[in-house]
Amino acid sequence: MIADLLTTVLVLAGLAFFAAGTLGLLRFPDVYTRLHALTKADNLGLGLVVLGLMLQAEGPAMIFKLALIWVLVLAAGATAAHMVAQRTWTHGEFERRE
């Protein structure tokens, strides 16, 4: 019962971080601030969601898999953010072609 309640709170908090990150992606003016909003908020949001789901996991294997997912997304997200930022730094921002 307490675990269920904690899961709900954690997942909802995680979703709030996702929403904030998405809002930043849509509203912030340039690539760097958007990357900042997206990667920071989403990594923390996913961490909270994963933590909430861990409380519902059936065994240690499931908990380990969930933790692994979070670590992998952290690594992939940080690398992708670095590459986008590096590319923008050396080449300038993509122009919109409308």
Partner: peptide, 16 residues
Amino acid sequence: TPGPVLPGAVRLLLPV
């Protein structure tokens, strides 16, 4: 892109 980040990430991700 130059720099150590991408090769480092590949070293981490490849075994996984």
